[in-house]
Design a protein around this nucleic acid. Sequence first.
DNA 1: ACATTGACCTGGGAGC
DNA 2: TGCTCCCAGGTCAATG
Length: 274
Amino acid sequence: MPELPEVETTKNGLIPAAENTKVSDLIVRCKALRWPIEKNLSILTKNQPIISIERRGKYLLFRLSNGTIIFHLGMSGHFKVCDKSVPLKKHDHIDIELSNGKILRYNDPRRFGACLWTEGDPLCHPLLVDIGPEPLSRAFNAGYLLKNCKNKKANIKAVIMNSKVVPGVGNIYASESLFLAKISPLTKACDLTENQASNLVKAIKSVLKKAIKQGGTTLKDFSGTDGKPGYFAQKLKVYGMAGHKCTACNSEIEKIVLQQRATYFCPNCQKATN
DNA sequence: ACATTGACCTGGGAGC
DNA sequence: TGCTCCCAGGTCAATG
């Protein structure tokens, strides 16, 4: 489910609920998500003020006064803001109860998500330390992308989905960005021209920004912290549109499989360069 | 160092 | 109705 816009939407929903509060209690109802959950998490976080809630790539950082809870939503994770009286649903794995009475409730059917505790700088955590610059920052630019494509034989779609190059671009937005930039997903990264790199960077930024404005993309599981879906699914040009007409040239959108992932593109607008 | 594949889970839909 | 199979927004770990 969640790529950068969905995580950003989640963060934006959590912040107003958690501002100027403390963790009054934290309840974990499963042993592990992707990784085991710190057994003492409840004790460690009790009565700790929430300093901030931040996003880095697809990770959510709950900075407390004595450490940080690092969340990743995996494929099916989502947060809901509610109060104690709301009955539990299946797969409600974690409740962060706040001193204002609200609960940040984490639900994750597939349990591919993560909930980790760190007392050091969370940006230096092994999972975060090697990830690339934020796609919406100036550090993510054509020169940077080109440098990271050099000598790489992998296709360009794999490269922009590699969080060590740039985090936050998942399977949906990779297809959408390549369509907008008119680059074939099959293009070898090392063959990317300066012009293409520039167009691709612009396309990624544009697609992500628009998706954030729409509250993300809901195909199935995702909802914002208010339970409402994201509306970017209605704006998708190629993802999930196999057999439909391209909005630019009227050709038929094709679906192929790359790195075992569904990949959608317009064979006419996104011609392979070799 | 890079590229590819399997693994982790559950649920929903298609097809029989 | 119920079974089996396939697919799904992520990404780490192991392999070549």
